[in-house]
Computed example of a mutant assay.
Amino acid sequence: MEYKAKYITEDIKLSCYDDNFFKSDIMFEHHMLVWFISGETKIVQADATYYFGKGDIFLIPRNQLATIINYPKDLQPHKTVVMHLTVERLRHFYASHPSKPQTMRPQQIYSFNHHPLLESCLASLIPYFDMKNLPEDIASLKITEAISILRTIDRSVDNVLANFEEPGKIDLAEFMEKNFMFNMPLEKFGYLTGRSLTTFKRDFSKAFNNTPQRWLTQKRLELAHYHLKEKKKKPVDVCYEVGFENLSHFSFAFKKHFGYAPTKLLE
């Protein structure tokens, strides 16, 4: 995979994948505003699957787990402008724009399609990516402009952007049953359930009477079996959607667990 990125600041980048395919399981540490220039993306979350393509604009709330699958399209690379809306910057913004956010669970991805105001704001960044030295205040003004436009389009976005709470301690079993398909370090699972790594492992053992890795592998294989048998999906698609990193590892683990290869279910 050939990946290229140009930065105006660490919070604004032009991202480009030239390969045929890129997949990653990630936790969004910052809110992300994304504008598609070309290519396609499939975003799989516990409760929903999203598809985005050329011209689409969307906002992903922070502290969300997702599987991201990027594709080129129409002989064009997967190319996006990405803007991070950090808690620090949002605190500064809302200090002069007071808001009382309401808790929203789960926080869904906001889709703005081809909204002209947002598209104009993000497209105006393109010339800056080729400049060697850009004053920090210009980048800051662009992010402030984007936040202001988001609030103009949909005021409920304050419920996400003005909410600065960190994840609190929640029911571990419920969370893991919902999010086991995301291939995250255990530290990330611990953070999102309000626990240290040590406490997470201890509580996990109490909840499932098993180690996290064994339980995760079993749950992912069971989900894969369901997708293959009941939904007739291809092994290559199922592999990535249930949390495996490559097809060969998935096929080996599947055959070891069930006694036959994934392709057997498609016959």
Rank of each mutant, 00 (worst) to 15 (best):
L134M: 13
P212N: 04
H92C: 10
F22Y: 14
C239Q: 06
E10P: 04
K142D: 04
N113W: 12
F204R: 01
P185M: 10
H97A: 01
D11T: 08
K201G: 02
L161N: 00
V87C: 06
K13L: 15
F258Y: 13
M32V: 15
R220Y: 03
Y94Q: 00
D11P: 03
Y51Q: 10
A66N: 03
L197A: 07
S96V: 09
L265C: 02
F93N: 00
D130V: 11
E177P: 02
T198D: 14
T263Y: 10
K233I: 03
L216T: 13
K142S: 11
F52N: 02
Q76M: 15
K201M: 12
N209K: 11
C121L: 03
M181K: 15
D18P: 02
T198L: 12
G190R: 03
T103K: 10
M27E: 13
F252K: 15
K169W: 01
G194Q: 05
E241I: 05
I147W: 00
N113L: 12
K233L: 13
T152Y: 04
P72K: 01
H227W: 15
P212A: 03
K4D: 12
N159P: 03
A5N: 09
Y226M: 07
L223G: 02
D56P: 02
W35Y: 15
H97T: 04
M27H: 09
M176Q: 10
E166P: 02
M184Q: 14
N20F: 11
F252L: 10
T67N: 13
D56I: 04
F129A: 10
E10R: 13
I43R: 02
R105G: 04
M83Y: 00
F204N: 00
H97D: 04
E119V: 08
S251P: 03
N246I: 04
E222H: 06
K42Q: 10
E166F: 07
M27S: 06
R151N: 00
H227E: 11
F21R: 11
P72S: 07
S248N: 12
Q218Y: 03
